[in-house]
Structure formats: structure tokens, C-alpha cells
Design a protein around this nucleic acid. Structure first.
Lengths: 347, 347
DNA sequence: CGGGATGGCGTAAACGTTTACGCAACGTAA
DNA sequence: TTACGTTGCGTAAACGTTTACGCCATCCCG
């Protein structure tokens, strides 16, 4: 049985206050006594009860990161970044995986209002229904969103990555690669991230002035299976020049479906994903993707959280820029459709 | 400010006991009063303070999973399995990532003794030094190891996967594929998992009776970089027929190095990994790997933990069997070196 | 109509800490 | 010497719950 402060006090015939002071390096206790307390604490195998400590002091040494899908490598990468940033400020991280389930998300938020964590970084969208189920006033200072936009009205703090810009970069890149008929394979239709990436794509195609046009938009979940199914539906009608998947997982699903149809990714169809997870650089033909600045997102989120907790209520929303990473899945297509004509000209 | 049970009681002119009973569906309170309490609790946005609750009841609704590297997809997969099993028994999961750092591991164990979690599932090795730093008696019932062996002497509970068997399966498979000079690319030299997989490999090669022999053993970390470096060292001396990497991450690193040398994976060299993470099925040439029964590991670990917490101290250690998943990285080699001679015979 | 159950509620102790306050003893300066 | 600050410690309240216990009605059965 874990020893308590009271047992230590009893053994030494001193008061619990003295023991507490001794153990916490607070003034008001002699050096000799401090050593005695330390020693018996070690002997008894004393471990402080965080619950009791948190109950009275109101402070908890943990912050939580809520992710929707731990299986999607993007989130472990984010977790790593957040963890490092948190460690730098002396806090450690616990990870909550919701599996895209609303009850788990609500539970995670409750974790915050029940003061089990000092702060929460949430990396998935919060809709009105969820927000209704928690006390916003209580929760709002101690919560920062990462990579998702704050719902309107709520003064929630967030650090965003510019999805529209990412989509734009992809759009321009695809036009440069010589793609004309472009398909977008989206995430859930209600996801702002997915919508913004599509919007960006449209803008990117527009400003590139190419004859490019988006020929199809589909929707589903953020999974490989959804990518596969959407590609399947897509191929019934047409074979586009290029496919932009709102997600690397989707992109991989799309790729699987393309391969099944004997369509060579990068040759027959250009393919781009989003998140630049490690796996897209390893696939049979490496997939072009948009890298999110996870390290910055993590450190900024932790920083903002720290400010909020220390009273600076100035919710300095931040928005970072992603960057396109071009790989064979589009470059090869480019070689065939852009350089090849030139070569033909030269010949 | 989050409302307390006391405020609700004050508003209704009843005692806190009544409120507590009403909210927790305990008997001893009238239906009418229960409804009134519920309503004002909702009005005030009451959220129970888990700290206070845990302090008095000694029960915490969370169990923790400690993983060494959240970036290694094997662990998210395990996390998912554990989470589902935990959810089935009404508990939710928090994830701790140690990044292979001992201080983080110690911190995670402290989390258990400080009663912030009801139980802990640890998926990385615990050595003597770590165990010394915590109160074993306190910690040991509430702790189960998953996928790693319990250190001798400590009566720690564990659910293992038979690494030796996995290695054996790989060994036999490689011999069947016609490999003779086989290299092993290991994890950290002190890792029992790595050692067992190597031992299994040796045994597998032996009982297959082939002229196969292990020509090299190296060691490092469980990372892709380590795999790359080890393959680099390996290739200075020789080009083996087959390489067995103790880990998929290592295997991918090895693959990267092989590709750089223009050695065709699956043709020039057979390659096998371990864990059967999703990525090895997506690489340019899909990599043969050994699948761990994560779902069973997860549910068994949770089950054992439940038994321990409810007093059944019978620490029923379990050991499960892995299964080899053969892919092109070895099958292609097999076609070239086993079937081809037969064809030649036939011709 | 009296008796013991029973249901509904309040009182208060307990969980393990932190911390404001009080109180001696001791030293130091006038 | 007096007066006063400082050091070292104890007392006790507080944090927000749960829960054993006791009390007063009410009800049912004989």
C-alpha cells in the first residue's frame, strides 16, 4: 500500500505540514528535518497522490492531446511534436484517441472540465452539438484546436494550417504537370478541412489558367477504404488525368483501386495526397503530397495553451503554411505530358 | 467556474449527500427529488471532479497504455485493440508515449502508483533499474506487460507473443525460398524480442535442414535509420541471399539501402520484416512480415488487468502465436531460385 | 391501534494533500 | 534590558466527493 504523508509524519512525530513542506522544497523547515523526512519517505516508498494534490492546488501536470484516428500516421507525428513542445515546458502528454466517435470526443472534453488535465489540444473538428454538451465557459480557457478551424461564435483558440493554400499548391502543380480533367476525392462532406482543400484546388486551377477543370467531387470518411470506394465510383464514369485526395489515407485507397484497374499511377493518372505521411514516400510509386508543419503546429499549440492558462486571454490565432512535396505520382505524369511534347517539337 | 455538488445542494436546500445519491443513481432518494437535482445540475453545467471522486473512492475510470514509439505503426494498431477491449469493459484509454526514454517510462509508472490510472499496460521492456525506482509491491498489481517478457524475479503479469516462433517461421520460409546466406538485422542488442527472433531464425534454419547459415548479425535501435545503417555495414562485406529484419521499420530502412545499391528487393535479395504493419504491404515491392495478433494481445491484456484489479491475483501469463505473411519480397526470390530450377529440369 | 419495516433525507467523517495562520524559541539591534 | 524580526514547527481549514450512520416520517400487517 502506497504510503501517505500522514504515515511519514506519524513515524517522525511531526505534523503533516512539515512533511509536505520538506518534500516540496518549501521554506519553513530546517535542513536537518528535511533530510529526515526525505529519508523516511524513500524508505516507505512514498508516492504523492496526484488526485489529492490536484484537488487542493487545482493544478495538474498533464496536458492532453485529442486525436481522431491514431492509426493515421499524421496524428502520431503531430503527437510527437506536441509532446516535445510540452516536455520543453515541463509538462507531459497523454493521448486520447476518439476513433471519430462523438461520445469519446465528449468524454475527452469532460476530461478537461473535470480538471484531470491542465489543458487540452484537440486535433479534430468540434461541432455545435459537442459544444452544447460541455460548459463552454469552463472549457474554453484550457482548450486549443490544432489543424481544425474554431467553430464560429465560440471564441475558441486555434492554430490552423492553411488548407486552402495547400489545395491551391496542388491545383497549380497539377496544371503544370499537364493535367486537364481533375478529380477530387474528399473526406467527410461536412469537414471544413476537406472543403477548404477542394476550394484551394479550384482556385489553384483557376489562377493557373489552364484548361483544367474539376470533373468530379465525391465524399466519404478519412480512410483508405473510403478512398478505394470513391475511386471505384469515379472510374465508372471516367478516367481523370489527375486525382487529388484530401488525405494520404484516401490517396492510398485510390491507388489500390487504380492498380486493380491496371491504371499506372503517375503514368496513366497523376495522384496527389495530403499530410505527407511517411508512407506515401514508400509506395510502389511515391505519391506527391502536401506537408503540414507539424512541429510548428505542436509548439504553437502548446505555447498558446500556456498563455491561456497563465491568464493571457489574448487568443492569438495562428495560421501556418503547408508545403507541397512533389513525387513520382505527379512528376512522371509531367514528364510524359509536358516534357514529351517539347521533345517531340525538338525532334 | 465549474459548479460543485455543494452549489447544487445550496440552490435546492438539500444536503450534498442527497445530490450525490441523486446523480449517481444510488437508492435513498425520491424520484421527484432526483429529477430536480438532475435539472439544476444540468442548469449549472455541473461536471464531477474526478480527482475528488478518485480520492475518496479509490477508483479511476481510465487505464493507461505505455508505448515506446507512437510513430511505429505497430503501436497505434495495438492501442486500437486495447482501446476496444477497454471500452467493452467500460473503461477508456489514455496513451503514454515514452519515445524510448527511461525518464518518461519511469514517469508513466509513477502515474500508476500515484493512482491516476486504474491500471497500466506496458508495451516496452522493463529493466531492473526502472523497477528499482518504483515501489514494486504497489505497482505490480495493476500492471501487465504486452508483447514483452516480464523480467525474472518480479512476479509481473504479461501477455506475450512467441517471438521465437515468429523467427522460426521466417527461417523456414527463407530456406524454402532458396536462400542460403542469411543476414539478421536486429533491434537493440539488449532487447529480448530481438534476441528471440534471432534465436527463432537460427532454429528455423536448422530444422529446415537447408545449407542455410546466418552470416551476419548486427544491432541498433528499432528505427528505419538503424535499418539503413546496418544494411550499409552489411553490404560492405557481402550481399546475402536474404535479410531478416527484426522489425518492419528496420526492414524499410534496409530496403532503402538496398535500392540505393541497385539491388532489387525480392530478386537480388529476399527481405522479411516483423510486425506486419500496414506500410510493408504498400512498398514498391511488398515485404514479407510476421503478423502479431494485436487484437488478442489487447483484449487479453485488458482482461488480465481486470482480473488483477478485482483481486484474482492468479497471474495467468499468456503466450500467443504470430503468423507469417508472405509477400513479393520473398516470394519473388522463391520463384527465381526454387521454381526456376524445376522448370529448367522440366525443360 | 401498535409494532416493525421501509423510504427519504441530513450529519459528518473520510480520502491525501496544500497552505494560511499562530506560536514558541532564538537571535539581533537599540 | 526591551523590542522586534526570523526561523521552525504545529493547527486546522479547505479542495469536492462518497458513504456509514442516524433520524423522522410513512406504510403495512396483525
Amino acid at each position: 500500500m502506497a504510503a501517505t504523508i500522514k504515515q511519514i509524519a506519524g513515524r517522525l512525530n511531526v505534523s503533516v505540514a512539515t512533511v509536505s513542506r520538506a518534500l516540496n522544497d518549501l521554506p519553513g523547515v530546517g535542513e536537518k528535518m528535511r533530510r529526515k523526512v526525505r529519508r523516511t519517505a524513500a524508505e516507505l516508498g512514498y508516492v504523492p497522490d496526484f488526485h489529492a494534490r490536484a484537488l487542493v492546488s487545482g493544478k495538474v501536470p498533464f496536458l492532453g492531446l485529442v486525436v481522431p484516428d491514431i492509426t493515421n500516421s499524421f496524428f502520431p507525428a503531430l503527437a510527437l511534436a506536441v509532446e516535445e513542445a510540452a516536455a520543453a515546458s515541463g509538462q507531459s502528454l497523454i493521448l486520447l484517441n476518439t476513433n471519430w466517435r462523438r461520445d469519446r470526443l465528449a468524454q475527452a472534453l469532460e476530461l478537461l472540465s473535470s480538471r484531470r488535465v491542465s489543458g487540452l489540444i484537440v486535433a479534430e473538428p468540434l461541432d455545435a452539438a459537442i459544444l452544447d454538451s460541455v460548459d463552454l465557459e469552463t472549457v474554453s480557457n484550457g482548450l486549443v484546436l490544432a489543424g481544425v478551424e474554431a467553430p464560429g461564435g465560440t471564441g475558441l483558440c486555434s492554430v490552423m494550417v492553411d488548407d486552402r493554400d495547400g489545395g491551391m499548391q496542388v491545383g497549380r502543380h497539377l496544371v503544370e504537370c499537364g493535367a486537364h480533367r481533375i478529380a477530387f476525392v474528399g473526406g467527410p462532406s461536412e469537414s471544413p478541412n476537406s472543403r477548404d482543400r477542394l476550394e484551394g484546388l479550384t482556385i489553384g486551377l483557376g489562377i493557373s489558367g489552364g484548361a483544367a477543370a474539376i470533373v468530379s467531387v465525391t465524399d466519404g470518411a478519412w480512410t483508405e477504404e473510403s478512398g478505394y470506394r470513391q475511386a471505384d465510383r469515379l472510374l465508372r464514369d471516367m478516367v481523370p488525368d489527375a486525382i487529388f485526395a484530401a488525405n494520404d489515407l484516401l490517396a492510398i485507397g485510390v491507388m489500390r483501386r487504380l492498380v486493380e484497374s491496371g491504371i499506372a499511377v503517375g503514368r496513366g493518372v497523376a495522384l496527389a495526397g495530403y499530410d505527407d505521411t511517411h508512407v506515401v514516400s514508400l509506395t510502389s510509386v511515391p505519391i506527391t503530397s502536401v506537408a503540414q508543419p507539424t512541429a510548428q503546429v505542436g509548439s504553437l499549440a502548446v505555447k498558446l495553451l500556456g498563455q491561456m492558462l497563465s491568464g493571457d486571454s489574448g487568443c492569438g490565432d495562428a495560421v501556418l503554411k503547408p508545403s507541397l512535396v512533389a513525387r513520382s505520382s505527379t512528376l512522371e505524369f509531367s514528364n510524359l505530358h509536358v516534357l514529351a511534347p517539347r521533345d517531340a517539337q525538338g525532334a
